[in-house]
């Protein structure tokens, strides 16, 4: 890859920060007026080391997207609000920063790719201008130099004939191509952390395969730390080496990918893994978790998975299990897995 060196040259001298790149501590997010507010994320803690690729998996309503939006400082407020917690990026609490500092960090240090490649691009601006704008915001660069860099970026994300495509408008691109452009914009300033929120959900499988391949390439060439949000364990298994499983606003399991697939410790993770349709599975009947995800705010005490759990014991109804260390590589919020018995 010839572009890699020229891209990394743009990177500001790496400020060496000891400890994890991102540390989220006891994050809670509420929606609605105070008093009757509903907690959509509660007590979420995790860390991401520099250079790692971590996935957050969960179904709709699990709070996974809210968590990632909180890191970007993009929780719609009102009605949303961060009730408790800290988000430490290179040791600096993002929640403690004045609002005016966030745009500076967004895009330069933390960048995000969204699910909808159709609506995330401005339809009346050319691709070249949009990527160029992202660069202009954070880096001093001459016009020609900037144009060169946009071409490099387009080449990096695999857009054929980039010099000619600079002047194209988003509607002239297919969904997969637009997602490539989005990725080019996101990595334009060589961010330290790239948050990808369901980057392939809106795409066809063969295009998804292309975009996943591109994400691998980005990681290889730019050494970007990745936080991938997805409902699809297959996508997460492809990119990440660690998985955080969220359910009803809480982290229920946190382990490296191989461990979680080999021996999931939380009954929800087990159910989720079993209910995925697989190409290799001969069994015609899919495993199904009984019942449904609780509506936000309806579970007042005990484990949120209690009503649907096949392994529940009395304790689960009374006390909410914290994220307990099962092995050094695996944490699960489950009394039973942690050794409690009825």
């Amino acid at each position: 890859m010839t572009i890699a060196p020229s891209l990394s040259r743009q990177q500001p001298a790496a400020s060496v920060h000891p400890g994890p790149l991102l540390k989220v501590e006891d994050l809670s997010i509420e929606f609605g007026p105070k008093g009757t507010a509903v907690r959509v994320v509660e007590g979420v803690s995790f860390t991401i080391d520099t250079g790692a690729a971590v996935g957050i998996v969960g179904e709709s309503g699990s709070g996974k997207s809210m968590t990632s939006l909180a890191v970007m400082g993009l929780i719609p407020s009102p009605p949303g609000r961060i009730a408790t917690g800290r988000i430490l990026f290179e040791g600096v609490d993002l929640l403690g920063l004045p609002r005016s500092r966030m745009p500076e960090i967004r895009g330069r240090d933390i960048a995000m790719i969204f699910q909808e490649p159709m609506s995330s691009l401005n339809p009346v601006m050319t691709i070249g201008d949009q990527i160029g704008e992202a660069i202009k915001l954070h880096q001093k660069m001459g016009r020609e130099e900037r144009r060169q860099r946009v071409v490099e970026l387009l080449k990096l994300v695999g857009i054929p004939d980039p010099e000619r495509r600079l002047g194209a408008y988003p509607h002239q691109f297919s969904g997969g191509m637009r997602q490539r452009v989005m990725i080019a914009m996101a990595v334009a300033c060589n961010p330290k952390l790239l948050i990808a929120d369901e980057p392939t959900t809106a795409l066809d499988v063969t295009i998804q395969a292309q975009v996943l391949e591109l994400m691998h390439k980005i990681r290889r060439t730019l050494n970007t730390t990745i936080l991938l949000i997805s409902h699809d364990l297959g996508v997460i298994a492809d990119i990440c080496e660690r998985v955080i499983v969220m359910y009803a606003g809480k982290v229920v399991e946190d382990a490296d990918v191989k461990t979680i697939f080999r021996s999931p410790k939380h009954p929800y993770t087990r159910g989720l893994l079993q209910s995925i349709p697989r190409l290799k599975d001969e069994n015609t009947r899919l495993y199904q978790i009984p019942g449904m995800v609780p509506l936000p705010g309806t579970i007042k005490q005990g484990c949120p998975f209690f009503p649907r759990c096949p392994d529940r014991i009395d304790k689960c109804a009374r006390e909410t299990p914290p994220l307990l260390e099962i092995t050094p590589q695996q944490k699960a919020a489950c009394w039973v897995s942690a050794g409690a018995t009825s």
Binding site: S174, G176, M177, D204, V205, T206, I207, Q208, A209, Q210, L212, E213, D232, L233, G234, V235, A237, D238, V257, K258, F261, R262, L273, I276, R278, L279, K280
Partner: peptide, 21 residues
């Protein structure tokens, strides 16, 4: 081959089709 298999042990070599439909 494009379906991401939820199994990190058997990371397969995918057939990646070029271009769009």
């Amino acid at each position: 081959s494009a379906v991401p298999e939820p199994d990190p042990e058997t990371r397969k070599s995918r057939i990646i089709l070029k271009g769009d439909v």
